[in-house]
Simulated scan of single mutants.
Amino acid sequence: MLQNRFGKLAATALAGSMLMGAAACGGSEEPTTSAQPSGAASSAASAATGPKVGLAYDIGGRGDQSFNDSAAAGLDKAKAELGLAETNELEAGTGETEAAKEERLRLLADGGFNPIIAVGFAYSNPVKKVATEFPDIKFAIVDDAAAAAPNISNLLFAEHEGSFLVGAAAALKSKKNHVGFVGGVQVPLINKFEAGFIAGAKAVKSDIKVDVKYLTQPPDFTGFNDPAKGKTAAEGMFDAGADVVYQAAGGSGGGVFEAAKAAKGLAIGVDSDQAKTAAPELQGVIMTSMVKKVDVAVFDFLKSFTTNSVKAGTTTYDLKADGVDYSTTGGQVDDVKSKLDEYKQKIISGELTVPDKTS
């Protein structure tokens, strides 16, 4: 989930002429892969002898202040602690086909990168296909369980559990008994966020009103990278009486924050602690964020690769595993933290089960 910030890509020496040639081809319907070095985002082969890691971002890439940036943070930690020999980070384009995603993964595999991490469920079919073609390479995919093979690790999260906590926070902080949810694209993954958020809000106030708006429907995934649409959706909710709006919309979330500031309302971030990463003038309206620790999952996978202990199949990062949580930056939920932590412990213990779908 994602926000395009000046197309900041990173790469290291991957059969240079192959990638540079690929970057010079293609048109707007199938955005091409770029492989330009980018300062700290690259690592030199001469500096370490560890693995060569390839990472394929979803739309927006490094700099989205959300989902992709969390994956990038995990890669950065691995660079610092695991002695990676090379890294190559490649970014997806808006509206591209699965064939373009397959080619991105093949470029990495052909360049000798192993392991390769795909960020986002949109890589499901491409990862499954390319992993079959390169059985000796380890692949990981974030947010997808459908791509299954002996060399694929599926890194999943209990987004509904984290969303329950911020839903409870929204209800506890709402003065109008009216909150909202803006989803980027109406797919099962984002429905998990919605389901948890509504359950959390209604656990606090059974009669609370929850507005729901999705920005686009598949196969249109631009809802994850359209701040203008996010702003319009949130404006409608604030105008209708909501005073807290939660966004699970990647790069479109910046527009939700803008609407919250204009309406003198509050917003809830997603994936990263967005009170730290959003534009400075918007950070104050973000009362909390549902933190989804993609960085932890990426680092764990890379560490397991260096110790020859990669596990194929599903690993789920839930509240019990500290894979999701809520943030407290800014102190705006300090007054309700004890109540949120009470809910958190009930979920961890199994006393409270959070729904992962709305119907």
Rank of each mutant, 00 (worst) to 15 (best):
P37Y: 05
K311A: 15
V291F: 04
D271Q: 06
T314H: 03
S153Q: 13
V127S: 04
S124H: 06
A312G: 06
G251W: 04
L2R: 08
A10I: 00
D295Y: 04
I59D: 01
L19T: 01
I268N: 05
E103W: 00
V185H: 03
G27Y: 10
V285Y: 04
P188E: 14
S289A: 15
G284L: 09
P219G: 05
V127G: 02
G63P: 01
A40F: 07
G284D: 15
V298W: 05
A199F: 02
T49L: 12
D335Y: 02
A201S: 12
L302A: 05
D322K: 12
A99F: 05
Y123F: 14
S70G: 14
K339V: 14
F224G: 02
L82S: 13
S289D: 14
T314D: 15
G200S: 12
S252F: 07
M237A: 10
N154P: 02
V333M: 10
Y214S: 06
G16D: 10
G250D: 08
A158V: 04
T288L: 15
F221E: 11
K344A: 08
V142C: 11
R62W: 03
Q186R: 13
G95F: 09
T288N: 14
P219N: 08
L189C: 14
E30G: 10
Y317T: 06
A100I: 05
K346P: 03
A35Y: 01
Q247A: 09
G7I: 11
D64F: 03
G112H: 07
T277C: 01
N125G: 07
N4V: 08
K138H: 13
S309R: 08
A44D: 13
D110R: 15
E161T: 10
G27R: 12
G223K: 09
Y317P: 00
T353K: 15
Q247C: 05
G253Y: 03
D144I: 03
A11F: 00
A118W: 03
A199R: 06
V204L: 13
E86F: 01
A248C: 15
V182T: 10
